[in-house]
């Protein structure tokens, strides 16, 4: 049975955030320290129908023409200036992480990619996470829920010219942070790689 939502609304920079204080990700997520409130936890940003309509048009591939946003506005039955202003706002607000071309071989020249899972003591997670994220070759770095059957809590994606180079890099990272409990997982086959369709 889920608890009654405790909603708090905050208006900030023209957005209304609706925060459900009772909402939690999952029961197995480590308990957060008291007094620290993570806004991303139960937060939803109010988007109107036009925002959702635009997101539906820019989550894929925009038209290749001199005036892609005018074309898009016409398809969506909206005004070009409004479309441009809304996309800029979504970008400024960080809802759009990036607007631009996605390359198929983003790792051009990097034929090996490894996900490295690390087991880091809880009290060192911030320091170690930040230091590993600082490596140029690391493209993604996340702390994730630790599982009984899979006792790792920090993940880094790294790219190298060969598996050997990835191993050497992981070794260097390991020495830099003094964590030797880690495992390299090389991707050997790609089954799917696409972008999300939200609306």
């Amino acid at each position: 049975m889920s608890p009654t939502p405790k909603l708090v609304k905050i208006a900030i920079y023209g957005w209304t955030l609706s925060i459900d204080l009772t909402k939690r990700w999952a029961s197995d997520i480590p308990k957060k320290k008291k007094g620290i409130f993570h806004i991303s936890d139960g937060c939803s940003i109010m988007l109107d129908d036009n925002d959702r309509r635009i997101i539906g048009h820019i989550q894929g591939d925009i038209p290749l023409s001199r005036t892609p946003f005018l074309d898009l506005a016409e398809t969506a039955g909206m005004d070009e200036a409004d479309v441009i202003a809304r996309i800029k706002r979504l970008k400024d607000e960080g809802i759009i992480r990036r607007f631009g071309a996605t390359l198929r071989h983003q790792e051009a020249g990097f034929s090996a990619n490894a996900m490295v899972a690390w087991r880091v003591p809880d009290e060192r997670i911030t320091e170690v996470g930040e230091r590993l994220a600082g490596f140029r070759e690391v493209t993604h770095c996340y702390q994730r829920v630790m599982h009984q059957k899979w006792p790792y809590n920090l993940y880094t994606m790294l790219h190298g010219k060969s598996e050997e180079q990835c191993r050497q890099l992981a070794g260097k990272m390991s020495r830099a942070v003094g964590i030797d409990n880690y495992i390299l997982l090389f991707s050997t086959e790609e089954f799917k790689k696409t972008s999300m369709e939200y609306f």
Binding site: S40, C43, S44, I45, L47, I55, I58, Q59, G60, D61, I62, L64, S65, R66, P68, I87, L90, K91, E93, G94, I95, I96, R97, R98, F99, G100, A101, T102, L103, R104, H105, S195, M196, Y198
Partner: peptide, 27 residues
């Protein structure tokens, strides 16, 4: 525009558009 069209046709560019922070969309 012509060069971008070629890069798309060759598969170098997968798409041009937005990448979202899914959490900020409350997903």
């Amino acid at each position: 525009i012509r060069r971008v069209g070629t890069l798309k046709a060759e598969g170098v560019i997968r798409r041009i558009g937005a990448s979202f922070n899914s959490r900020r969309l409350s997903f």
